[in-house]
Structure formats: structure tokens, C-alpha cells
């Protein structure tokens, strides 16, 4: 799991790469904790390079969503593979984190 970030005004776009599972959830959490600190307005997680997520990865996203909400910032996701999109549906995570088809759509939504 690696994560790269770009900042555009108050919005941070973070792109994790690889699998988000029980073996690297701690590492993923540490990386996102640092990103949350730098997020003023919104954090977009671009899942283009993510091939897998389990409940351990979802837990990290939930902790991150709670932290951002506490800071008055928002979280959005984009570019999910079909099996990952299905996991978000089954878990009900699609009702707490907005999911967009593309990075451009996600950026437009947080700026709107």
C-alpha cells in the first residue's frame, strides 16, 4: 500500500495504491491521519489504483470520515472498481461517503 497526495486549494486528493486489507490497515490509517491534518475543506480519495478492500480498510475510512467531520471538512471517493463498489453497497458505506465516477466529478462536487 502506497499513497500519494496532491493539494488544490483547501482540497486534498489522495491516491492509495494496492490492497487495503487487514495486513496494512494500520499503515493506511497512519497515512490518512497525516492527510486529514493537512485537509482544510475536503479530502478526495481516488481509488483508481485500489484493487481490494476488506472491512479492515472500511474501518480506516470510517475513522477518517469521522475525523474530517469533526474538523468541518468533507470526504468523497471516486473511481471505484465494480467489486469495491459492491462492497460499499453491501456495507452501507455508500450512504455515509459520497462516491463519484471520476476525479473530475468528485472535485466538482466538493467545490460546488
Amino acid at each position: 500500500m502506497e499513497i500519494s497526495t496532491e493539494t488544490d486549494g483547501g482540497t486534498v486528493v489522495a491516491t492509495p495504491t494496492g490492497r487495503l486489507d487487514g495486513s496494512n490497515a494500520r499503515e493506511f490509517q497512519d497515512a490518512l491521519d497525516a492527510v486529514v491534518q493537512d485537509t482544510e475543506r475536503a479530502l478526495i480519495l481516488d481509488f483508481e489504483q485500489v484493487s481490494y478492500i476488506s472491512s479492515a480498510g472500511l474501518r480506516v475510512l470510517l475513522v477518517t470520515a469521522k475525523a474530517l467531520q469533526g474538523n468541518g471538512a468533507e470526504l468523497a471517493l471516486c473511481s471505484l472498481d465494480d467489486p469495491i463498489r459492491e462492497v460499499f453497497g453491501i456495507s452501507g458505506f455508500d450512504s455515509i461517503i459520497p462516491i463519484h465516477a471520476s476525479r473530475a466529478d468528485a472535485l466538482a462536487s466538493v467545490k460546488g
Partner: peptide
Amino acid sequence: APDLTSAVGERRVGGLGVHFMREL
């Protein structure tokens, strides 16, 4: 039963693993 509906602030992740097994 997994929590599939609470708002972000109250949401818990417990029970999701077994829920995935039953759904998938």
C-alpha cells in the same frame, strides 16, 4: 446485526465481515 444505516458520527464497523460472507 451490522450497522448499515447510522450517520457517520454513530456508525460502527462490527459484524461487517460475517455480513459480507452472507451477502457474497
